[in-house]
Every structure is written in structure tokens, then in C-alpha cells.
Amino acid sequence: MVELESLAAFEQHLASGKSLANVILQGLELTGHTRTLLAADLAGTIFLGCQLEKEALQGVLAHGALVFPPFSGLPYSPYRGTLYTPEELYAGFDPARPESYADTPDARIYAHWNSRGGANPPSLLETLAQRLHDHAVTDALEEVLANHGRPRKVVAIMGGHAMLRGQPDYRAVVELARELARLGFFLVSGGGPGAMEATHVGAWFARRSDAELDVALGVLAQAPSYKDREWLARAFEVRATWPLRDEDRPACESLGIPTWHYGHEPPNPFATHISKYFANSVREDGLLTIAKGGVIYSPGSAGTIQEVFQDACQNHYNTVGVVSPMIFLGQDFWTRTRPVYPLLEHLARGHEYGRYLLLTDSRERILQALVDFDRELEARGVR
């Protein structure tokens, strides 16, 4: 079915003489279009959260359309047609006044979520609105990954939110992500601070020099933790100093997938696309599912370890149709500090994904493994 997610797309569709039958109209302001709607073929048409005049509402229902009404009083749209951007979520943020984050759409949505019971809202309407929102975000995410018919080569980097700017681990993730972006991979993370931020910083600087990256990392290191008052301000300073140029954007795009379940962690301002969810379970499973090009695990704690075994389960039973690499950055960390790798290696014996396990400290080995796997997918016609 055709999806029309903007008024411009709606008007262009009509101007081309196409029918509205079996078309999905998502979140459109259609007051003033009543005459057009009443004259159209609306068999199988779906209206998701559209603003309709009373006469139009009665008419489209009589013509056999299905109408999902808009919700009132929410700081978010359950029927949004696109992913979020940092500019949208951080609208109103003033780096000179870090406390202004509380006035941004992201902070207001988190405050609303908390005030309605958090992960367990007692209101059926609130639960329904959140589920519709997350469904709409997933739909928009699939469109971004399809990339106008040129599917992206998705690689995810996982790691802890507590990883500090200025640490060697942080820089290692930045440099790895930058090299992957230069090789044409589309970088994805959980969309928060720490190792997740480092992933998107690397993609952001894919077309910048080593000297520029060094200076930028120095600026970020002035506020190492997301708990620091200047953390977000320093990120916006770097964005303003080294903005994404139009010609660089295709190589520097990346995707963050955060959640308001962890809304005390601000979303990453270096991710060009933000797929933010209410349901953390949907976010976690979806993040691992789309990373068919491979998943890299940098040092992390309980959340990262959960992702390791969730990914292992997908690979063990091949539930997504592609068994993809699981790469562990940091031999000492993954065999001594968090001795996950020996158990995973034992679990994978006799299974296809055992071939795609890698434990290393070498950025070059990681890059080569992912390039080799990408060629394998291309040879198999899987992308």
C-alpha cells in the first residue's frame, strides 16, 4: 500500500491523477480538503491520526475507509511518519544554558512518560498511543534502511553508557566507526552516551581529517560523562564547529535507537537519524535484528551482556534469516573482566555462527572480517 506522510505528498499524489483507494494517509492536516475526499474512491483507504472536518469524517467512513482518530493532550504524535532528528528532539536547547534541555521535546516527552506511570501506564489510551507511536517509528525506520531501493549495509556497535569521553576505549570506538563509515557501512547504536555516542562521533567525522577529530575529541573530553552539566553543550559545540556538509552527509549518516525507558540518558546528538521508542524490548530486539552486517561489542556492563546473548539467540536459531558476525573488541575485557566470550564460544560449537565469532584488539581484523562478510552476503544475494 502507498503511504502518504506529508501534505505535499498527498497533493502530488492527487495531481498525478492517482486514486486514494488502498492508500494510507498518516498524520495529515486535511481540513479544507473535504470536497476532494468526498469525491475520491476510498475503498481500503486508511486514515491514521488525520485532522478531518466533521462532514469529511462522516463521508470517508461511509465510503468504506478506516479511520484511526488523533489523540489529544500528548507531547508526541502516535502517527508520526518519519524518524526523529537531533534538531527535532533538542528544539529549544541553548548550549549556553544547559538547563534548557528541560524545555526540549525530548525532555517533555520523558516527563510525560514518567507522569503516566513510566513503563506501566494504568491508562489503556496511553498504552495504545505508545504502541501506535512505536509501530510508526518502526515503519519509518524500515524506510530509512531501504534507502530508496539501495539497502544500507548495517553494522551495530554496542557498549556501555558509562564509557567516558577522553578514555582510550572511547577513542578506539570512534576510530573504528569512522573507518567503517568510510567503507560504506551504516553505523547503528543504542543511541545514548558512552560507547554509543563514540559510534556516531566516528560516523560524523568520516569525511574530516585526523587533526579535526583530535580537536573535537578534546572539546568533548571537557565534559566526560553524560551526568556532567556541560555534556550536551560540548556536543553541540562540536556539531556547530564541524557541521555535516551536504556533500558529506551520505557517508556520515548514522542511526541511533534510544528509548524513553532510559530517558535520563539524553539521546545522541551526533546520530543523523533517531529511532526513539517507548518500549525498550522492541528497541533492543529491533536493534539487533537490523544489524545483518554484524555486531561489534565494545566493553560494557549488564545491558551490553544482555545484547550479546540476545544476538546469540538470533544467530543460534537463525530467526532473522541471516547469521551474522559477533565481534568482541577487547580480549582481556571479554575473557577476564567480563568472561562472556568463552561461554559464547562453547555455545556456538557445531552451529554456523561459530564461524563468525571474533575476539580481538585489532581494528584491522575487525574491518577485514566485516568487509569479507559483506562480500559473502553480496555473493549470496542477501542484503
Score class of each variant (00 low, 15 high):
residue 297 Y to P: 01
residue 32 G to E: 02
residue 317 Y to G: 01
residue 365 R to T: 14
residue 330 G to Y: 04
residue 82 T to D: 14
residue 232 L to K: 09
residue 66 L to V: 07
residue 132 L to Q: 10
residue 303 G to A: 11
residue 142 E to D: 08
residue 1 M to C: 06
residue 119 A to D: 12
residue 30 L to E: 03
residue 366 I to P: 09
residue 286 G to D: 00
residue 292 K to N: 06
residue 150 R to N: 15
residue 52 L to K: 03
residue 219 V to K: 07
residue 280 N to S: 09
residue 364 E to L: 13
residue 53 E to H: 03
residue 346 H to N: 13
residue 112 H to C: 10
residue 252 C to P: 08
residue 312 A to H: 12
residue 266 P to Q: 07
residue 313 C to I: 15
residue 311 D to K: 14
residue 21 A to F: 03
residue 173 V to R: 05
residue 4 L to I: 14
residue 168 P to T: 02
residue 56 A to F: 09
residue 79 Y to C: 02
residue 54 K to I: 13
residue 214 D to W: 07
residue 302 A to Y: 12
residue 47 F to E: 11
residue 84 Y to H: 15
residue 123 S to M: 08
residue 363 R to D: 11
residue 71 F to R: 10
residue 374 D to Q: 12
residue 203 A to C: 03
residue 146 A to L: 09
residue 125 L to N: 07
residue 36 T to H: 02
residue 107 A to F: 00
residue 31 T to P: 00
residue 195 A to R: 07
residue 343 L to M: 14
residue 320 V to H: 14
residue 334 W to E: 10
residue 15 A to M: 00
residue 196 M to N: 04
residue 148 H to G: 12
residue 79 Y to K: 02
residue 25 L to K: 07
residue 237 E to F: 01
residue 280 N to W: 03
residue 57 L to T: 15
residue 345 E to H: 14
residue 190 G to R: 03
residue 82 T to I: 03
residue 317 Y to C: 02
residue 331 Q to T: 15
residue 287 L to S: 02
residue 317 Y to K: 10
residue 290 I to V: 14
residue 192 G to R: 08
residue 103 D to K: 15
residue 208 R to Q: 04
residue 327 I to R: 03
residue 294 G to M: 01
residue 25 L to W: 10
residue 311 D to W: 12
residue 351 H to A: 12
residue 76 Y to L: 15
residue 143 E to M: 11
residue 10 F to T: 05
residue 167 Q to H: 08
residue 276 K to A: 14
residue 157 I to F: 09
residue 149 G to D: 06
residue 362 S to I: 11
residue 22 N to S: 13
residue 70 P to D: 07
residue 166 G to E: 09
residue 181 A to L: 05
residue 136 A to N: 06
residue 99 E to V: 00
residue 148 H to K: 14
residue 259 T to A: 13
residue 93 F to W: 10
residue 228 D to E: 05
residue 321 G to A: 09
residue 302 A to N: 13
residue 314 Q to R: 10
residue 342 P to C: 05
residue 319 T to Q: 15
residue 155 V to E: 08
residue 319 T to D: 14
residue 260 W to Y: 14
residue 315 N to S: 13
residue 148 H to M: 13
residue 156 A to S: 12
residue 264 H to Y: 15
residue 217 L to E: 12
residue 108 R to G: 01
residue 259 T to K: 10
residue 161 H to C: 05
residue 143 E to D: 11
residue 215 V to Y: 14
residue 265 E to A: 01
residue 199 T to N: 10
residue 254 S to Q: 02
residue 139 D to N: 13
residue 105 P to L: 01
residue 355 R to S: 09
residue 116 R to T: 03
residue 374 D to F: 01
residue 236 F to T: 12
residue 55 E to W: 06
residue 232 L to F: 05
residue 44 G to W: 11
residue 320 V to M: 10
residue 211 A to W: 02
